[in-house]
Nucleic acid binder design. Structure first.
Lengths: 342, 342
DNA sequence: CTGAATGCAACAATCGATTGCGCAAGTTGT
DNA sequence: ACAACTTGCGCAATCGATTGTTGCATTCAG
């Protein structure tokens, strides 16, 4: 006969002739419980296969063991890797991961944040929706002391915990790479400028040009709302139609860059000879497209992992921690789409 | 001054001069509560911003509002789409989605199932690990009446709820497509045969050959453990080295098919003239590779969505439902990699 | 040898919602 | 007018763990 509900601390308490509170404290190594008692309790707990009922604990503590992860779209290579890392880190620490997606809509983001709040997650990992420019909806978490860690797409003027890559440096390196390959007129596909990541990438691009004494030409700095394949194609079409087209493109994502390759090829433009291209993210696509797309690689899974670890740290520090920004390194991954020299 | 914990049914009860039990029942439209009372309770609930404390409810009911989703790898196009669909359906119904990945290891799968069980998920959506051949670890769920829905990679000899695609028909159609394009000697890349999906695909392939009076040659039926890019390349190399190489390949996934294209191209084999190729899954890669890869498309997001809906249905039916198998349709998506005729 | 400090553990309240049982007022039947 | 229902709702236990407070023994200092 199975006991539906499993062993409880009351069962253990009865068997050991102690009170449930003692059992509870013993299991948590509470200092006011004797060494011997702790040992006895723990041994019996193992013997009887005791398992904490996390729901009961959650009710009492008004907080679950679940970490919410809020992203724009799950089915994107970068995001799913990030989630993967977060999931592993959380599970390793005995936490569960709750997922939701904003579909890049602010309204969804707000709803989901609210749902997470009401389901009493013990921490939140967020990568903002493309639209998001105000952050009030996170206040309930911040106020009530629940750790929130922003990842990748972050609110840049807020003093909160962040895990990001060095977008400026990455963009600088990518641009410099093109310059090193002999490119002199480099176009840029950027994203919505209210998102810090795109602003930083633009800045890195500009700084690299300046550092190499190359002129800055605003007509070949283009911006997409979502940097979709469609936008990538239109932007490429525009560039190639210019009287003075660029000799290379630094795209702030791979999707648009791949699209650029496809369109350019179809237009008879040789890559990289006529047009060198480098993307951003190092999506799997990069190695499939012909020629293979150079890109900027970043540790997506690590970002997820670290974000979760940050949450756990903040929890254990109990608010004695000052929000910090963790910046991860990136690497230019050079492939045929940008390699002009052997 | 914010109330940390929010409004409870006790607050509503006090204000309305009824008992908490009445409030609880009213909110659930319990038949033994008067129409007027229900209305009054609900109105006040809205007015005071009452929110169910799901933890308390969970404790009492010994069950959460979380649906566990257990997959092999989150960061795969098919899987992440499936999760995306599941997440949307769950959220729409007021449930949360808990994610975990087996990394295709049976041990991980067991651990994660156990973790989900202990965290009292109210339902489980599973796509099996590649390794999995026994299913005892799901018994605790089945025994205790928690709905489990298997998706895509399913235990085929078990009488459980399943959501799958018609792998046999899909494989038949894909093979027939190659035949229609004039292919006469069609190779097959299959997966581990203890997984029903691969067995079915193989069967569909064979049946299509037979239906067209084409000979069956076991030397060009190859099997990969994971159908990775690496395996795809090796299998292609093997095929091209045969004295009598095939004129086409039906691969049970896109990864291996893309790899085949890449290797074949590098070996000077023309696609589709010398070698026509069709994959399976319709991953984004298909449209990136040159030539674009034909594939079998299936509704990944729908599978996730339907799986979650099944869970909800089973819950509401309270065990009065016989396990059924829902089979979704697929479509051959013909692209240049297999189109020999105009 | 006595008052104080210390170590260990029990009591009981609490978290918020759910639910079996029972009771009272109102309705119907005869 | 009395028994038999029906309708509507309250009481109190329960889910399992956590935690502030209290209390009993030892042990130690003076």
């Amino acid at each position: 006969m199975k006991q539906k509900t499993g062993v409880t601390i009351y069962d253990l308490a009865t068997e050991l002739n102690v009170s449930p509170s003692t059992v509870s404290r013993a299991l948590q190594n509470h200092p006011s419980i004797g060494k011997a008692t702790i040992k006895a309790v723990k041994e019996l707990a193992v013997k009887r296969g005791y398992r904490l009922n996390s729901i009961a604990a959650s009710l009492r503590k008004q907080q679950t063991n679940n970490i919410g992860v809020l992203v724009s779209w799950i089915n994107r290579p970068f995001i799913s890797s990030l989630i993967s890392g977060a999931e592993e880190a959380a599970r390793a620490a005995g936490f569960n991961v709750l997922i939701s997606q904003s579909h890049d809509s602010l309204d969804n983001e707000k709803d989901n944040v609210k749902a997470f709040f009401e389901s009493r997650v013990c921490g939140l990992v967020v990568s903002l929706a493309m639209e998001t420019q105000d952050f009030e909806h996170f206040n309930r978490f911040l106020e009530n002391g629940t750790p929130v860690v922003f990842v990748d797409r972050i609110p840049d003027h807020l003093d909160v915990q962040k895990v990001i890559i060095d977008n400026h440096a990455a963009a600088f390196k990518a641009t410099q790479h093109l310059i090193d390959q002999g490119c002199k007129r480099i176009a840029h596909f950027g994203g919505a400028l209210h998102q810090a990541i795109y602003r930083e990438r633009l800045r890195g691009y500009k700084d690299a040009l300046q550092a190499n004494n190359l002129p800055l030409d605003d007509t070949i700095i283009l911006h997409g709302d979502l940097l979709s394949a469609d936008e990538g194609q239109k932007m490429t079409e525009f560039l190639l139609g210019l009287p003075n087209p660029p000799d290379s493109i630094f795209s702030a994502n791979d999707t648009a860059a791949v699209s650029a390759i496809q369109f350019a090829k179809s237009a008879g433009v040789r890559i990289p000879e006529d047009l060198a291209i480098i993307g951003f993210n190092n999506d799997p696509l990069c190695m499939i497209i012909d020629p293979p797309l150079s890109s900027v690689g970043h540790p997506a899974a690590d970002m997820g992992r670290i974000a979760v670890q940050q949450i756990l740290q903040i929890k254990s520090a109990e608010g004695k921690l000052v929000p910090q920004t963790i910046m991860l390194n990136t690497a230019v991954i050079a492939r045929a789409s940008s390699l002009r020299k052997t």
